[in-house]
Simulated scan of single mutants.
Amino acid sequence: MKDEQNNIISALGVAMTFDVSLEIERRLNFLKDYVRSSGSKALVLGISGGVDSLTAGLMSQRAIRSMRESGYDAQFFAVRLPYGTQADEQDAQKCLSVINPDRIVTIDIKAATDAMMEAVNVDAKDLLSGPRHHFHLGNIKARQRMIAQYALAGSSKGLVIGTDHAAEALMGFYTKFGDGAADVLPLSGLNKRRVRSVAQKLGAPDDLVFKTPTADLESDAPLKPDEDVYGVTYDEIDDFLEGKTVSPSAHHKITAAYRASAHKRALPVVPIEIA
Rank of each mutant, 00 (worst) to 15 (best):
L170I: 06
V98Q: 03
L81W: 00
K201L: 08
A204R: 06
V209G: 10
S156M: 10
R196S: 02
A169T: 07
D102N: 15
T55H: 08
K2T: 06
R265N: 06
A11P: 10
E4N: 14
A221E: 01
H136I: 06
F18Q: 07
M1V: 03
I24R: 02
Y174P: 02
A153W: 13
P225M: 01
A262G: 05
L223M: 11
N6R: 12
R259N: 11
G203S: 07
H263F: 15
D19G: 10
L223I: 01
E227K: 08
V160E: 06
V184W: 05
H133E: 09
S10T: 15
R145I: 13
Q86Y: 10
M116A: 08
R27I: 07
K211G: 07
K192P: 04
D108Q: 01
S10Q: 15
I272Y: 11
I109C: 01
T245P: 00
I237M: 11
Y72L: 00
L45F: 04
T17Q: 11
A167V: 05
L190I: 05
C95M: 08
T106L: 14
G154D: 12
G178T: 07
N139E: 02
V35P: 08
K157F: 10
V79P: 04
Y72V: 01
A167W: 08
D108A: 07
E69A: 05
K176T: 10
K2N: 13
E118D: 12
N100M: 09
T175F: 03
H165G: 01
A221C: 02
L241R: 01
A215N: 02
I24T: 04
H251M: 03
V79I: 10
A74M: 06
G172L: 10
L267I: 03
E118H: 12
F135R: 08
R132L: 14
G243P: 04
K94Q: 14
M117P: 03
G189H: 00
E25W: 02
A266C: 08
D183S: 11
T17V: 07
D91M: 02
S247Y: 02
L127E: 07
R145Q: 14
S247F: 05
I272H: 08
Y174T: 06
V229Q: 02
E227N: 09
S53M: 10
A215Y: 01
V195C: 08
G158M: 05
V122W: 00
L152R: 02
E89K: 11
D123N: 13
Y83W: 13
I254Q: 02
I274Y: 15
E227C: 07
S37F: 06
K224R: 14
P248Q: 07
L12N: 04
E25C: 05
I107L: 14
L241K: 03
T245D: 01
L28K: 11
S10V: 10
L267M: 09
D226E: 12
P205C: 05
R62C: 13
F30R: 09
K125L: 03
R259Q: 14
V122L: 11
